[in-house]
Design a protein around this nucleic acid. Structure first.
Lengths: 135, 135
DNA sequence: TTCAAATCGGACATACATGTCTATGATCCA
DNA sequence: TGGATCATAGACATGTATGTCCGATTTGAA
């Protein structure tokens, strides 16, 4: 479904939304979240470039959210790591599949895809953090 | 979503359900469906081993459905090519995610996953063939 | 009985996702 | 000013999905 980079990115940003704007080191995040350190470094570098995360070098540095957790949705994270193709492409992989020229699953897949997109679009990091605790 | 092997398998089996039990060569299928020939060979070999397809060597040989198109669902194809993990695993990749210990998306993801599973489970090859034509 | 058509099995090749390492530069503190 | 702590960039390594090739075997027909 979501690739690993995306999963790590979401989990990391949820964790960052609990640090009240303080910088957290990649090392600490990697250990807390059980994500390979060097891999997480790469992901965070991308999130910095894409504007979701701020970074600071040196002692006491690390990364933090660039915006408040209420302003960032899951879908924004998917877009930042370029993992949205599955929200647009045909289930059976037909490049020319569309409303006029549908594959067998096309019309039933539309509403499902909408719900998936909605799932990620309607929850902010702040809400996800809450959901994690309440169950 | 579905990996390429699965997409090719479904497309091929839908095509085979239009051949009235006649053997069709892998070469012909590959050209008709625009699927790489050697790759399709591998997929069909697996479908033969898994019991969805019959094969016969030699002139006039090829592959055909082992059962009638009304008896095979999309989900059976997913299972035959071992592409069902996404129907069972956590959206965020947590191995320990479950009803008692849910990830933030868990409870909302359940109904969506059910609809996806239902989509594949409720349509037979015969129906998919029909849907393809009617749009 | 020979030849061509077809699958089958295993090996090989390539692309992309995932994971790892090293050198560099920035920042803070003693 | 020097050393420790941090992110950054690029290169490297591994694994899995995807795609390709070849020799062996079976089958049908001339």
């Amino acid at each position: 479904m979501l690739n690993r980079e995306t999963q790590y990115a979401i989990r990391t940003l949820i964790a960052l939304s609990e640090s009240n704007g303080e910088y957290v080191s990649t090392r600490a995040l990697a250990e807390q979240l059980n994500i390979p350190y060097f891999f997480l470094s790469k992901i965070l570098q991308k999130l910095v470039r894409r504007g979701l995360v701020d970074s600071r070098k040196g002692l006491g540095g690390g990364v933090r959210l660039r915006h408040s957790p209420e302003e960032i949705t899951g879908l924004m994270v998917l877009e930042a790591v370029d993992d949205t193709e599955f929200l647009e492409s045909c289930v059976l992989g037909f490049p020319q599949c569309n409303d006029q020229n549908p594959c067998p699953y096309h019309h039933e897949w539309g509403p499902i895809r909408s719900r998936i997109q909605e799932l990620f679009a309607t929850h902010t990091l702040a809400e996800l953090r809450g959901l994690q605790e309440s169950g």
